[in-house]
């Protein structure tokens, strides 16, 4: 992307660059704090993708694809769904119903560790699936053109 033609976006690039790690960090907060405040895996996954899309918008789609390869994005989507479903299978193996988190850790009745970590794990599955899917969709659209022309901004 470097070149004299794109140099006048330098302010945009400098301002947007420090925002990217903050957005990604906020996504993690949204995920792990989903038990206590609004948010959860779905919103966190979308926010992570927003960070990567911002990177793609200011540095170009090719560096973004080098940083987060499309094959990684679509594997992540599949992996997320598998994580979610395997928590259900885990509770089946432990002798409970599908996705019944109470039995996950063989707790005494009244213990809430299974519920807490069960919710966190399925939300992690949702995060991976949503982030991978959204990023794959973005790559499928944005990968068809090289860059946004200056006159379109």
């Amino acid at each position: 992307m470097a070149g004299p033609r794109t140099d006048h976006h330098v302010v945009l690039r400098i301002v947007a660059k420090p925002l990217i790690p903050i957005i990604a960090l906020f996504a993690l907060y949204v995920h792990f704090h989903g038990d206590y405040s609004p948010g959860g895996g779905f919103q966190a996954g979308v926010i992570i993708v927003v960070a990567i899309v911002l990177y793609a918008l200011i540095f170009g789609i090719t560096p973004a694809m080098r940083a987060v390869p499309p094959v990684f994005a679509r594997s992540l989507a599949g992996l997320g769904f598998i994580i979610y479903a395997s928590v259900g299978v885990w509770s089946l193996i432990m002798g409970g119903n599908f996705l019944d988190y109470d039995v996950l850790f063989n707790e005494e009745p009244g213990g809430h560790m299974g519920q807490h970590y069960g919710i966190l794990m399925v939300e992690l599955g949702v995060l991976f699936a949503v982030a991978g899917s959204m990023l794959s969709i973005f790559y499928a659209f944005a990968g068809r053109v090289t860059e946004i022309k200056d006159e379109d901004w």
Partner: peptide
């Protein structure tokens, strides 16, 4: 639409 990297 095809995989992103191939269309790129």
């Amino acid at each position: 639409l095809g995989f992103g990297e191939r269309s790129l």
